[in-house]
Amino acid sequence: MFVMTLFTGFSSATHGQPSEAMDQTNTVDHPKHSQIAPKRVVTLFQGATDNAVALGLKPVGVVESWTEQPMYHYLRPYLEGVHYLGLETQPDLESIAWLNPDLIVGERSRHQLISPLLSRIAPTVIADQLYDFKALLKLMGQAAGREHKADELLACWQVRVEDFRMKMASRLGERWPQKVSVIRFRGASARIYYGGFARSVLDELGFTRPESQRQSGWGINLTSQESIPAMDAEAIFVFMVESNPSVMETYRTWTRHPLWQQLEAARSKQIYKVNPVTWNMGGGYLAANNLLDELYAHYSLEPLNQAQECCTC
């Protein structure tokens, strides 16, 4: 829903967005190129592909998605005819070179190894974090000569965040801020996220977390059903790759377990199954907005209409 509104044009409004200092550790090579706005962008991780689409840049080359191969359904309409460059972890360097790009977007943990080669192919920006979509949006806006567009998008996001917080506070009353857990089922194990894309968005939206989950790091992998109580919270968001039978088997056995039935969130029916692409894999501006859409729907909040979203920012 929100995706559709993105391209209908934002008025060039003023925005009171505090300008956060650009992260100095981001590397922008070949600054001499940045005067000319890049036209041929190659994105080497999912969040960058999502953000490129959000910025109105259609990449010439992208890496394959983790599920719904070759590309997540929510991005497909914007990526017709795009070149696929293999996996996020090992993109095909030669194909990148053949595409003759003028901007390559990579990420530190994935592409540090190949970044010297990438820089020789084209100006390359390397993001610090896979899931920090806001920093990435600024970085890409700057590298692609679309700072203004990036600022606009971030200002709109800010409006939505504030609206959500306000409406949640009035809907939940004393129960806000709500303590929530983010859980993922996998083949033979389950995860509690302390960090990552969904958690960072939830934090920004004002959700809190149970005491035991106030830890740094990405989270914890649980292999024993005895650990189910560690997942408990006032509400639990659950996602998994439902096309994988072994994942669904884990989901069925764990959620049938008596300990699961005794969770506070289970008893109060506050367990929500959410979309893994939106909550974990997309990792960009559009995914973040889709996540917010899902939350509006789950909590039966009145969504902002398009006019409010854009004119107030």
Binding site: T89, Q90, R110, L113, I114, L117, G217, W218
Partner: peptide, 26 residues
């Protein structure tokens, strides 16, 4: 590998199989 996060585990796996991907002059 089991106790490390996704990204690290994936890198470690790739490394363990033995890959010449992105071999550079260095």
């Amino acid at each position: 590998i089991v106790t490390s996060p996704d990204t690290t585990a994936m890198n470690a796996y790739l490394w363990l199989t033995g890959s010449l991907y992105a071999a550079q002059w260095g």
